[in-house]
Every structure is written in structure tokens, then in C-alpha cells.
Design a protein around this nucleic acid. Structure first.
Lengths: 210, 210
DNA sequence: TAGCGTTCAAAACATACGTTTCAAACATAC
DNA sequence: GTATGTTTGAAACGTATGTTTTGAACGCTA
């Protein structure tokens, strides 16, 4: 019988395990046993492990992508000026707040993104590109309008650098949290890091050209 | 018979395959067959796959780490001032030029670093930390001297951000090269990116505090 | 209630993996 | 040339993986 949520229980468990240990290192048996469902359920509902991975990302990125799209439209309509500050803090707020019911969710989001990016050429990367490349290039356009004097090529790379700084740091947070705890006797949260990230990103993206 | 270079042939092949596809996705059979050595050779010479991974990193990072150490000492002795520019361009030159006989080597270096960082908690990360944490904190000290007014905690995170931007971008170069080729009709090299990286990193690390 | 499509559970399947074994081939020292 | 320790080669081992199969349990409609 369609017991409420076999599919969702698989997705919930898979996204946590994928974020913790990576895709290859997470077996279907680990997912299904922790989720309390039968092993065959993954192949039955999703078709394959690869399809499950894509489903996990779709459930994650679609709300974020749609929210970003809506916010950009809202900015255009209400005449909020395109500035690096506005754009970057918009993204930061969305990344932290797309799933407000679960604050831990943001950490999983960042770790999953890092896993996806460091993933070899596999199908995931191109899937993400063709699925969410549109929003990304729209964001890039806004950033270009915010910095009209910067050559598009230079801006492209600087956005990539900023993306790297953000995803890389936030996806490796666990280890960094520990170091910060040891060296500075301070607990840090994802929100702390994104707050510190903003000036860094703005300084980097708007830096004078050599 | 100790045919000249079984160990080296394994290391050469392993480092390329690890960089291309990741650790879990690269089997010992793929390595040994491409290297033209027997499957058992890995366990005979290295003991295990995990030990092989560490050996690959040691061969890579030790020359870099030693060179960086020497250059920092040289800076101290000759009185070269600690500035973000000097420190960052030093690292950039070393990363690109530690293996001058093979320009491709730098790309492998970056991709391997990215794989190591995005790796889950596994033993590799702590191995790298206890092996090369010393040079890293020495570099951090120099950076602190370059920016005496910045709180150490803030500097720590900004260095992490910079590290993320560098490794993340350079380790995903293949895809980014392709995009750049399509969008801008330009071929880019690792050296191009590091040249563009420098102003971004300096701007980010020295950005005014909020 | 009978039939039907959907979902579940348990088991088996085929394959790929890291590792181990053991004998043969080799280099070196005596 | 023989003996000894080291390295190679081919095969097997045990295990873990993703996937498939089969039949039972279930909800729904006629």
C-alpha cells in the first residue's frame, strides 16, 4: 500500500547521506535501511541511483531557483538598483532561507552543491547546467548592469571566483567550524559565514582591474 | 625484477585518474591496467588503496610545501615586506611552477586539491592537515603581519574564502574553459586564471570590514 | 465481491571491487 | 653457479554494490 511518504523518506535520507559522504560512497542499502524502506524501492520509484541523485537536486534547487527568479523580477519591477551589494545579499538570504522550516537544511544545501561541483564530468554537472543555467545567466546580466565598466569576460571569472569561495567554504564548514572552535573558542554558524562572505565577495568582484 | 619504475608508473597514472574521476570512482584495476603493471602491485608496493592516495598527495604536495617554506624564509631574511600582493603572487608562482617540466601538471595539482577538499571527513583531510598544516599557519602568520589591523578571526575566514575561490575555480577549469570558449571565443590557460585571480583575492582579503 | 493496477517485501542475480595467495622470474651477493 | 631476498604474474577470494525478479498485500473501481 502507498504508505504515506516512501518516496519522500528516500529523498530525505538520501540528501542527508549524500551531503555527508558523497554520492559514490553512499550505497542504496545505506539509504533504504536508514529510511526504513525496502531496497528495491529506489529502483522502483526512481529507476536508478543516478536518477535518485538528480531527484534530490531537483527538490533542492527548484525552489531556490524559482525564488531567485521571482526576486529578480521583483527587483526589476520595483526599480531596486542593480548593485553588487543588493544582488549578493539577495542570494545569501535566499540560500539561507529557502527552507526556513529547517535551519539545518541550508548546511545540507551547501554541502550538496559542493559535492555536485567537485563531481567529475558525470551527468550531474551538465544536468544542473541545462536545468538552472538560465537563472544563473540572468543573475550574471544583473551583475553586469551593476558593474557596467567591467569587461564581461573579467566579470564572468570574478563571479566564478565568488561562487567558488562561497560553495567551497560553506561546503567544508564542518571542518572549519572545528578549527574555529579550537583556535578562537568561538562557535560559528552558516549565517555567520555568509555575513562575513559578503564584504569579501564585494571587495573581490569590484576590485580594480590590473 | 624491479623494472625501472613500477612504483612511479603507478603514481603517474593514479594521479591523473584520481584528478579526472575522483578517488572512489577510480578502481585499482583501471590504474594498473592503464599503467601496464599487475593488479597486485599496488597492494604490494603501497599496502592499500588509501595508502596509494596518500602517496600521490605526498609526491605532489611535498615539493610545493618545501618550496613555499623556503621562499617564506627567503622573504624574511632578505627583508621583503609582507604584503598581500607579495604573498599571493608567491603562492601563485609556486603553484604554477613547482613542476616546470610539465605544464599540464599544474592542472592536475589543482584538480587533486579540489578532490581532497570536497572529500568527506575521511582520513585524507586530517592527513593533509597534520602534514601540511605547519606551512599553512606560517603563511597565515605572514598574512596577518601584512594586515595588522584585521582581527585574526576575520582574516582566517577571508583566507579560507580565497582558498576556496582558487581551488574551486582551478579544479573545475575544464568545464569553465569550455564555457569561456563558447561565450567569448577565447582559449584560457591556468596561468590566465591565476593572473585574474590575484586582484580578486587581494580585493576580497583587504576589503573593508562591515 | 471480484478484478486490476500499484506498491511492498524478500530473495536472488550479475558484476565490480579491494585484497590475498602462491608460484615463477628476477637481481644480487657469495 | 647457487642461494637468498625481492618483485612480478595470474588466479582466486570474500564482500559489497546496483539491479532484477517474483509473489504477496493493498486501495480502488465496477
Amino acid at each position: 500500500m502507498a504508505q504515506p511518504g516512501t518516496v519522500d523518506r528516500i529523498l530525505d535520507t538520501a540528501e542527508v547521506l549524500f551531503a555527508q559522504k558523497g554520492f559514490a560512497e553512499t550505497s542504496l542499502r545505506a539509504i533504504t535501511s536508514k529510511a526504513g524502506v525496502n531496497l528495491a524501492a529506489v529502483n522502483y520509484h526512481f529507476g536508478s541511483k543516478e536518477a535518485l541523485i538528480q531527484a534530490v537536486f531537483e527538490r533542492f534547487l527548484s525552489p531556490f531557483s524559482q525564488a531567485l527568479d521571482a526576486k529578480l523580477t521583483e527587483m526589476e519591477e520595483t526599480g531596486v538598483p542593480d548593485t553588487p551589494e543588493n544582488l549578493l545579499s539577495l542570494i545569501s538570504r535566499l540560500a539561507l532561507g529557502t527552507h526556513p522550516e529547517d535551519p539545518q537544511r541550508a548546511a545540507v544545501f551547501f554541502r550538496l552543491s559542493g559535492q555536485a561541483y567537485s563531481q567529475p564530468v558525470g551527468h550531474l554537472r551538465e544536468y544542473l547546467h541545462q536545468q538552472y543555467g538560465g537563472v544563473f545567466s540572468r543573475l550574471q546580466d544583473h551583475m553586469q548592469r551593476a558593474l557596467p565598466n567591467m569587461p564581461p569576460r573579467e566579470l564572468f571569472w570574478r563571479v566564478q571566483f565568488g561562487l567558488g569561495a562561497a560553495i567551497f567554504t560553506l561546503s567544508g564548514m564542518e571542518s572549519l567550524k572545528e578549527i574555529s572552535r579550537k583556535d578562537f573558542n568561538t562557535e560559528v554558524t552558516e549565517a555567520d559565514i555568509t555575513r562575513r562572505l559578503l564584504p569579501f565577495l564585494i571587495g573581490g568582484i569590484t576590485a580594480p582591474m590590473p
